[in-house]
């Protein structure tokens, strides 16, 4: 099975066409001169200019980036802790509840998560806005971060940590010197995932936000309800390009780190 057979090749071509054509069409039409989205009237970058000169888009983008940065960073810290709890802390009272909450957060319909968080903020008398959206995003993205980091913790050999402890390392320094470097690519991937999730979220942000903190998806949504516009096409294309670039770079970094580690491990084995 080293070659594609025609059936599998056709299936994959059709499958990927289905997955990618809508996005590609959207990007093509973002360069359309005409405001009528389906009539091609020549190449133009004017919609990109109008996106960058639109102050409300830029404000929303700035809010979104700040929410994404803060929530992804805190979610990664909490997710790393939670992953260690699941894989390294042994058993304790209420572990089932803990695992259950992590799973449930991920599969919960967004409308329910959004509604419940909003009602919490109202009960606590929090002013809704930037920080409530950030808190909401930390909560759901930390669970995805936990799963990503956990997957890495499960597969790596604990013998190295044990060796460090045997050689007199404290637990904390064993974690800093052995565990952390090994799981670092997973932590990076978790941060990126958390950041993208925050960047994408419409439903939870709509519930958790208040006046003055409109995120980019909320802004896009209010425009989309009116109909298709070339500005939204241009804005979407920018977002897609940024995310695609980030993801591809991250996966290349991870691949390189993996190859380097394999090489080092091999060297370590051969020198003994």
């Amino acid at each position: 099975m080293t070659r594609f057979n025609w059936f599998n090749a056709t299936t994959l071509t059709l499958g990927f066409a289905f997955l990618y054509l809508p996005i590609i069409l959207l990007m093509i039409y973002s360069f359309n001169e005409s405001r009528l989205v389906t009539v091609w009237a020549g190449f133009s970058t004017k919609w990109y200019q109008s996106v960058f000169s639109n102050e409300s888009f830029m404000n929303a983008a700035w809010v979104t980036l700040r929410v994404g940065f803060i929530s992804a960073s805190l979610a990664t810290v909490l997710g790393t802790m939670a992953a260690l709890v699941l894989n390294r802390a042994g058993s304790f009272k209420g572990k089932t509840l803990f695992t259950g909450m992590i799973y449930a957060t991920m599969v919960m319909p967004e409308v329910i998560t959004g509604l419940s968080l909003l009602l919490l903020f109202v009960s606590l008398d929090f002013t809704r806005g930037f920080w409530t959206v950030t808190l909401a995003h930390i909560t759901f993205s930390m669970c995805y971060a936990t799963v990503v980091i956990s997957a890495r913790l499960v597969t790596f050999e604990r013998s190295m940590e044990e060796a460090a402890l045997d050689l007199g390392c404290t637990r904390f320094s064993a974690f800093m010197q052995i565990t952390l470097p090994i799981i670092f690519p997973a932590i990076l991937a978790a941060w990126l995932l958390a950041f993208t999730l925050s960047l994408d979220d419409l439903v939870i942000a709509s519930f958790a936000s208040g006046p003055g903190a409109t995120t980019l998806p909320m802004k896009i949504y209010s425009q989309v309800r009116i109909g298709v516009s070339p500005e939204i096409n241009a804005l979407s294309s920018i977002l897609i390009a940024v995310v695609a670039f980030g993801v591809v770079t991250a996966s290349l970094i991870t691949k390189q780190a993996h190859a380097k580690r394999m090489k080092e491990e091999q060297q370590a084995h051969s020198s003994t």
Binding site: L19, P22, L26, D200, I220, G227, I240, V243, A244, V247
Partner: peptide, 23 residues
């Protein structure tokens, strides 16, 4: 990776892209 990549791009944008196709 090509299967996973669309998952990373905004859900809202991917749904929106279909308006231009289906209308």
């Amino acid at each position: 990776m090509l299967v996973i990549l669309p998952f990373w791009t905004s859900f809202l944008i991917r749904v929106y892209a279909w308006i231009g196709i289906l209308k």
